[in-house]
């Protein structure tokens, strides 16, 4: 698809069969930014409609997970938490993890869930898996307030290094977009993905340093842990919150893995995008 000026004000769209590795059309994505915005806000608005607690869920969910993890791993399994109170240690891991896992789960389901849009109207399909991020970001922001409260409670306090958190969230966005779009595109053709996602995420949780510290692994093998693209930003997030040194090497390994997955996902998405309306 090309769009160009035609006789001054008009423009011409040329529709032709697309072949080969039609890549990502950034200009087109930008042209549809209004749609992305509307879809993002739609998901945010709809998220807690007709619930008793409303946005309270955004507070309650990480708290409940933290409680469970604290009891099971902190108290019963006596998991080390690098000297920090286990509850704070867990919450600082649970928040970014929840962001990542709910973004991936929602993105994976998003295309199939928007059949009515995909088969009736044209727009860059990538907007759909992207649009689930809005609600996740809002949940994370609300969760951060809980984290602030808990940090103060435990007397850990907030340091200047917290300004790095948005950067780490951006990193997480990168990583969840890559995995989420890949799942979303695969899900269109193979609905197996829908059944796979919950399991994958469950296993993934334990492959990520959320309930345990990465120091559980011997130093020379730790980089393997960071091949998991979610591991780097989540661990760094916690390191910042607990005011510890960030494992930069691990972060770099995760970033490389993230970018690789993102590239593969976007390429694959671009290739199969045109078939979505027929297959979905």
């Amino acid at each position: 698809m090309r769009q160009e000026k035609y006789f001054g004000h008009d423009w011409v769209t040329i529709i032709e069969p697309r072949r080969g590795l039609a890549g990502l059309d950034m200009r087109e994505l930008w042209a549809y930014r209004d749609l992305l915005w509307v879809l993002l806000t739609r998901d945010i608005r709809v998220r807690y409609k007709q619930t008793l607690l409303g946005a309270g869920w955004a507070i309650l969910r990480p708290l409940l997970s933290t409680l469970v993890f604290t009891v099971v791993f902190g108290r019963m399994a006596k998991m080390p938490s690098e000297g920090a109170p286990y509850a704070l240690f867990a919450l600082a891991g649970v928040l970014p993890w929840t962001f990542f896992s709910s973004a991936v789960a929602a993105a994976g389901e998003s295309l199939v869930g928007s059949q009515h849009l995909v088969s009736k109207i044209y727009f860059p399909r990538l907007l759909i898996p992207l649009s689930v991020l809005g609600a996740c970001v809002v949940d994370l922001t609300v969760g951060l307030l809980v984290l602030v409260a808990m940090s103060l409670w435990y007397g850990v306090g907030i340091t200047l290094s917290w300004v790095a958190l948005p950067l780490l969230v951006a990193f997480l966005v990168l990583c969840s977009v890559g995995i989420g779009t890949l799942f979303a595109a695969l899900n269109v053709t193979y609905r197996d993905v829908r059944h796979l996602i919950p399991y994958a995420l469950q296993v993934w949780l334990y492959a990520t340093p959320v309930v345990y510290p990465p120091t559980l692994f011997p130093e020379q093998w730790r980089w393997l842990l960071y091949l998991n693209p979610a591991a780097g930003p989540i661990e760094a997030f916690r390191a910042v919150v607990l005011d510890r040194a960030v494992d930069v090497q691990g972060l770099a390994v995760s970033l490389a893995a993230s970018l690789l997955i993102l590239a593969v996902a976007l390429l694959y998405f671009g290739r199969v995008e045109r078939r979505f309306a027929d297959v979905i």
Binding site: D10, W11, I15, R274, A277
Partner: peptide, 19 residues
């Protein structure tokens, strides 16, 4: 569906002048 770009055509070409 082809004109509205929901489905990509297998052959042929469409030129649309205007929005």
């Amino acid at each position: 569906k082809v004109l509205s770009r929901i489905t990509s055509p297998t052959t042929g070409r469409v030129t649309v002048r205007g929005r």
